[in-house]
Simulated scan of single mutants.
Amino acid sequence: MEHIRTRLVRFAEPNGQVHIGLHEGEVIRRLPGEWRIADLLGVPLDTMRDMVARASTEIPAESVRLLAPVDGLMEVWAAGVTYERSRDARVEETSEPTVYDRIYQAERPELFFKAPAWRVVTDGEPISVRDDSTINVPEPELGLVVNAHGEIAGYVVVNDVSSRSIEGDNPLYLPQAKIYAGSCSISAGIVPAWLTGIDDLAISMWVHRAGTVAFEGHTSTASFHRPAAGLVPYLTSHLRFPDGAVLSTGTGIVPGLDFDLKPGDTVEIRIANVGSLTNTVLRTREWLDSVEA
């Protein structure tokens, strides 16, 4: 069950002005000035806590539109093959099964770029599936919000939408399977790291189709193959993220090869203590025409 109600959010007021604040139930307490999420992630975690504590002006949550909690030069990266189920699914789908079995056992994780901040969508906005892919899946994942100093500052829900058929045809097609319009969705709020642990969080996903549940899956971060925090140094030791980053930690829920995410579906993801994320599905061309018009 989800109990934590305080989340750091980015939101647009009716006049179009964008601010950040703490979402607590029916109100948002706005942070002062023109601070961005990136500004909070540019300072050490203790300083961020002091800055967040300055939230004051109360705004009715229903009066604003929540935005994806990423801005500035923030990037989204992701890890792969971090659960046994993910390893098994990749071996099942690919023409090169030993690649995934080896990475599952290796000390160095698989990390890949997913999206810049401006390409990320959030709760209630559409995601998409590629027109040139025959097997598409949503991937529910815990996201680590990492600051410029390599500290974990918070947590989000991530949907790492992917093409199984493209990656399965050749692992070198991974960027095309992972990076395209509408392929990255993040929950609208960041749960500050000091409010929850992540050792055993229930993760659930449902795909709703034409009034029925086309797929349902459940797992827990307790099934993670390696400590989630151990992924961070592999990302930050040889790169700098002056505005912070989100590192999605991989999925333990993968449908069988007989499942294909389709336009018109709705994907619902819940992670205990972190939040929820719901998105309808479009085809990529439809997404581009409707979202970027």
Rank of each mutant, 00 (worst) to 15 (best):
N15I: 04
Q17V: 13
V18D: 06
G21T: 06
H23C: 03
E24S: 10
I28K: 02
I28W: 00
P32Y: 05
G33L: 11
R36W: 03
I37N: 06
I37M: 11
L40E: 06
L41C: 04
V43K: 07
R49W: 12
D50S: 14
T57V: 09
I59K: 02
P60R: 08
R65E: 10
P69K: 04
V70N: 02
D71Q: 12
M74A: 04
A78R: 00
A79C: 08
G80I: 12
V81R: 02
R90I: 08
E92I: 00
E93R: 03
S95A: 11
I103M: 14
Q105A: 12
E107S: 09
R108C: 06
L111I: 08
F112S: 09
F112M: 14
K114C: 02
K114P: 03
P116A: 14
P116M: 15
R119E: 12
V120E: 03
V121S: 07
P126L: 05
S128N: 05
V129W: 00
D131E: 13
D131F: 08
D131H: 09
D131L: 11
I135W: 01
V145L: 07
R164T: 07
E167D: 05
N170C: 07
L174Y: 01
L174D: 00
A177G: 14
K178S: 11
A181G: 13
I186D: 00
I186H: 03
S187I: 03
I190L: 02
V191F: 01
L195H: 09
L195D: 09
W206C: 13
A210V: 13
T212N: 13
S223M: 15
R226V: 09
P227S: 07
P227N: 01
P227Q: 08
A228G: 14
A229M: 07
A229C: 11
A229E: 11
G230Q: 08
L231W: 01
P233H: 07
P233L: 07
P233C: 14
H238I: 09
L239C: 12
L239M: 11
P242K: 13
D243A: 10
D243S: 12
A245C: 13
T251A: 05
I253F: 05
I253A: 05
F259E: 14
F259C: 08
P263T: 05
P263F: 05
E268N: 03
N273D: 09
S276V: 11
L277K: 03
L277C: 03
N279V: 10
N279Y: 04
T284K: 11
R285K: 13
V291A: 15
